[in-house]
Design a protein around this nucleic acid. Structure first.
Length: 437
DNA sequence: TCTGGGGTCCTAGGACCC
DNA sequence: TCTGGGGTCCTAGGACCC
């Protein structure tokens, strides 16, 4: 039996852990640069705020309804996610961490009451971490996902077999099936298929012909035949991307070069963390896609030898930039993609290339120092970190409550709060600040 | 004026091999 | 006039996920 555990409005719930006063109030979390909405509380959804909506377009709704707005704080979300996953591991050793806010668990298929189990999971995660979750059960991952969809409208827990699969799939729109995206649901709708049940009962040859292997697998899964196995051990990464929109549009090549160097620093740190090296590097830059003169170029640079050195990768990113940079544009975004990844201890030498220094010891030292003192403590001079004008806008970011000693939340017990009040009134005149926390 | 970031899998078709 | 059969590798583009 598969279980899917999914956090409710995950980023919003993370913010609420340290702002319990925001329960029941409309809250949204914004993308990097505070550009658009990427998470909404139930109350915010009810106001008609849409996923991915540009902030400047719905500013009036946010203001009128006193919506609480947060800049993205991915460090906080990642840390709370890790805590939730470790709680879930206590329920089953067979776990696949599917995304930052979702995990699949596998349980023996016996006669136990799975909805009771589901409620235990919800209670424990809420009590131990503070984030509400929902749980769906089914004999395949797709059925567990479907059960979870249904659980959102009810108590937060659903065993699709207990409720009756056919009956449940009948109430699920085909577009809400895991693996059926926009294109396929439009195609299905145009052929009179609106519900998950109708899709499940379509002739398999038709599904295979029009939606190929992935669509066929999804259909099999809805019949209770598990085709998508649990991936308990994460596969090796095939590519690593780092890209960022700039806080302000860039026109100088040297600024773009600095931003690219930072993209390389972020991506290659991840690369080294996974013990991998890249055989090729893609560089891309773009102006705003919403402008008429949208300009976007990319170039792939094969490297003479696989590497994980930020110094070498930054060098090649500069060469790539020469190819794609066109003067006179207002650049909005840059990025790098590390490709054709191999294990760092299995690098194939190049017969016609003398081999560059891999900087292994240097990178190890850089990562150790940055790990201890923060990502931008040591970096290449080309980044021009302290003069960067591409800095992200993040004007409403919460603190690093769980990952920085200097930003621990302060808690006051009621009796201390009373003392604090008294002291504050007493000392207001001379301005000295009470120290009790 | 202002609009995010990071991934995977599958297929068709071209280019090549014997 | 008539021109085989069996394969691999690579890439671009499409579709999907969070």
């Amino acid at each position: 039996m598969y279980a899917l555990v999914d956090c409710r409005s995950f980023y919003v719930s993370c913010e609420r852990v340290f702002r319990p006063d925001l329960w029941g109030k409309p809250v949204v979390v914004l993308s990097n640069n505070d550009g658009c909405i990427i998470a909404r509380s139930q109350e915010a959804k009810a106001l008609g705020l849409r996923m991915g909506e540009a902030v400047f377009k719905c500013q009036h709704i946010l203001k009128q309804n006193e919506v609480h707005v947060f800049s993205a704080n991915f460090g906080l979300y990642g840390d709370l996610s890790a805590r939730i996953m470790s709680v879930l591991e206590g329920f089953s050793p067979d776990i696949e961490i599917y995304s930052i806010d979702e995990a699949f668990l596998v349980f023996p298929n016996d006669n136990r009451d799975y909805e009771v189990l589901g409620r235990h999971i919800c209670e424990r995660v809420l009590r131990w971490v503070g984030v509400p979750v929902g749980v769906g059960f089914g004999h395949s991952k797709t059925l567990a996902k479907a059960a979870h969809e249904i659980s959102k409208k009810g108590s937060g827990v659903c065993d699709i077999h207990q409720r009756g699969v056919t009956h449940t799939l009948q109430s699920l729109p085909v577009a809400d099936i895991w693996g059926i995206g926009k294109r396929h649901s439009a195609f299905l709708n145009s052929n009179g298929i609106y519900t998950a049940r109708q899709f499940r009962d379509m002739p398999p040859e038709v599904v295979r012909k029009r939606m190929h292997t992935p669509g066929f697998r999804t259909q099999q899964e809805l019949k209770g035949l598990s085709c998508i196995p649990l991936e308990a051990v994460a596969e090796e990464r095939k590519q690593i991307v780092s890209s960022r929109s700039f806080g302000t549009k860039l026109t100088e090549q040297s600024d773009v070069r600095g931003a690219l160097a930072d993209n390389v620093a972020v991506a290659s740190e991840k690369l080294r963390f996974y013990g991998q090296a890249a055989q090729a590097l893609m560089v891309f830059i773009a102006t705003s896609r919403y402008n008429d003169d949208y300009y976007s170029r990319s170039v792939v640079i094969p490297l003479p030898e696989a590497t994980a050195s930020s110094r070498i990768l930054t060098h090649y990113s500069g060469i790539g930039l020469e190819y794609v940079y066109k003067p006179g544009k207002r650049y909005a975004k840059s990025g790098v993609m590390l490709m054709n990844l191999v294990k760092a201890d299995h690098i194939q030498g190049n017969l016609f290339y003398k081999g560059a220094c891999q900087d292994t010891a240097l990178m190890k030292a850089v990562d150790a120092i940055n790990g201890r003192w923060g990502r931008h403590t040591l970096q290449l001079a080309v980044t021009q970190w302290h003069n960067r004008i591409w800095k992200m806008n993040q004007n409403m970011k919460s603190k690093r409550f769980t990952t920085s000693w200097n930003e621990l939340p302060e808690v006051m017990s009621p009796c201390v709060a009373d003392l604090y009040k008294k002291k504050t009134t007493q000392t207001e005149s001379n301005g000295s600040f009470p120290t009790s926390k």
